[in-house]
């Protein structure tokens, strides 16, 4: 009896891997051989961003420092936590601040969500900046990756803007005056400063119009833009032949 059960249990994983349900989702068995290791990458929308095989240099933690991936993960966490906050948040002068207060006092795990969103936002800005430094100091921008670097600079700017627009949303003294200072800086654009500032704020001062504008930029337009450009960023990494790596010794001589 017991031994029959034991044997059946031992066969269970294989049976699950062979079952119609498993196969309908994953299509291939466990990736412990070359064929399945290729298929697992090609059959999954998430894994197919990766090549089936990577250079050993790419796997060296001291090369990438994991910073690009960390930036991506922080962004995903921001989408998740931001999405949860968006269920409750209302971008009006009367309600925004009250909502944040309630988050801290009466919404279960509300403060945790807000904290996570805010700290992830700061960490993402830092991680993206450090990622740029890593790419620069390893020469990862060189041909044929020139354009991906240019794209990266745009990603950096969008990340700044995302964090900046989010900063206004709690509508407290900190955010109000930070955005006042920040948009004043934009107002110094030569020849059309006043226009630039009015375009950002929807008014001449930081008020309800600005809050709505920043909210829409923050939760819809800028994240959408970042997602699209990140798609291009990753696609380019593949098209540029994976990550940069030192040339083999014999080619350096040439």
């Amino acid at each position: 009896m017991i031994s029959r059960l034991r044997q059946q249990l031992r066969q269970l994983p294989e049976q699950v891997l062979q079952s119609n349900i498993w196969r309908s989702i994953f299509r291939q068995g466990y990736p412990d051989n070359d064929e399945n290791r290729s298929l697992v990458v090609m059959n999954s929308v998430f894994l197919h961003f990766h090549p089936v095989k990577v250079k050993t240099n790419t796997l060296r933690p001291a090369y990438t420092l994991g910073l690009g991936i960390m930036s991506l993960f922080l962004f995903l966490i921001l989408i998740f936590t931001g999405g949860v906050l968006t269920f409750l948040y209302l971008p009006t002068i009367e309600q925004a601040y009250v909502f944040i207060q309630e988050l801290h006092t009466s919404v279960p795990f509300g403060a945790l969500m807000r904290n996570a969103h805010r700290w992830a936002a700061h960490l993402m800005v830092l991680a993206v900046f450090l990622h740029m430094m890593r790419v620069f100091y390893t020469g990862g921008y060189k041909h044929p990756r020139e354009f991906n670097w240019v794209l990266g600079v745009i990603l950096l700017v969008i990340t700044f803007l995302l964090s900046f627009t989010g900063y206004l949303l709690p509508w407290d003294q900190l955010s109000f005056w930070a955005i006042t200072v920040g948009t004043n800086i934009a107002g110094y654009t030569p020849f059309m400063g006043a226009e630039v500032r009015a375009f950002l704020l929807g008014s001449t001062t930081v008020g309800g119009e600005a809050l709505l504008r920043f909210y829409v930029l923050h939760v819809v337009l800028l994240p959408a833009l970042l997602i699209i450009l990140l798609g291009v960023h990753f696609w380019r990494i593949r098209k540029d032949g994976g990550l940069s790596a030192p040339l083999p010794a014999e080619e350096v001589e040439k």
């Binding site: 904290n115 700290w119 407290d172 003294q173």
Partner: peptide, 28 residues
């Protein structure tokens, strides 16, 4: 980090009460 450190929240925004110093977010 999120369990240990609370995100700051000051008094509600008040256009008539200038913060001193008024600072942009750190990366600006």
């Amino acid at each position: 980090m999120s369990i240990l450190i609370d995100a700051p929240l000051r008094e509600a925004a008040n256009p008539n009460l200038t913060e001193n110093p008024a600072k942009a977010p750190w990366y600006f």
